[in-house]
Amino acid sequence: MTDPLLAVSGLTKRYSRSGKIIAAVDDVSFHIEPGETLALAGPSGSGKSTIARLVLRLIEADTGRIEFEGSDFLSLNGAALRGRRARLQMVFQDPLAALNPRATVARVLDDPLRIHHIASGPERPRRIAALLERVGLSSGLAGRAIHEISGGQRQRVAIARAIATKPSLVVLDEAVSALDVSVRAQILQLLLDLQREERIAYLFISHDLGVVRAIAHRVTILEAGRIAESGDARSVIDAPQSVIGKALVAAAPRLSRIERDVS
């Protein structure tokens, strides 16, 4: 076993709401190995999205450590932090909200290539076309505006943007929750293919245990900002030990409950 790609320890984030201090994330520790998918699951308000934003330094933690690729990620600032972001990317739930509504597909993909000096100006259109094809889109889509393409296409563009800088870890914050089910299956398959071929690790945030069970190696179940239980995704979901784990499993809709007799 190598060093973990991401090691989070004692992560805490508190908010004060109408005078009361509430811990959105309370002493959370976990790690992710290279090329592995760790799922964070839990009901709304369990702190899973806050953890995603803390790991990405979109908000700052009160206490705790985040080690990413062997160095202290929380000590970085300014240009050093922006440079490091190439290795740690994110895909949001709603691609229409997460991409500039005025942008074209080409511009969305051009930004990371330009910012991280991955390709020179004249070379970038070719790289953009390659990225689009990498996520299963036609390179002819480059000139289209973000609001003109379908929801599934948008999420593929968002994934292309995330992998443009060759990251080692991508945070997927409910990245398939808003998609149509038939589109969702294709996007999940794309994510698995990318992981296998490029050894990308995923921090997969979802409230849907069915999806978690389908694509995660390990799962951490959260409740009210704390870790309720962790372990191998299938073992935990097939036999949850914690109260919240049992409740989540019981609440998931299941087709197999439908009686088999066809009348």
């Binding site: 990405l56 922006r82 740690l88 909200a97 509504p101 910012i115 991280h116």
Partner: peptide
């Protein structure tokens, strides 16, 4: 909004975010 967070995640400079992503909107 998420697209501003998205711009930060790809490492865009804050001034570029302010004037290229936020201001036009």
């Amino acid at each position: 909004r998420d697209f501003v967070a998205g711009a930060r995640v790809i490492g865009m400079h804050p001034l570029e975010i302010a004037f290229r992503e936020v201001l036009p909107n």
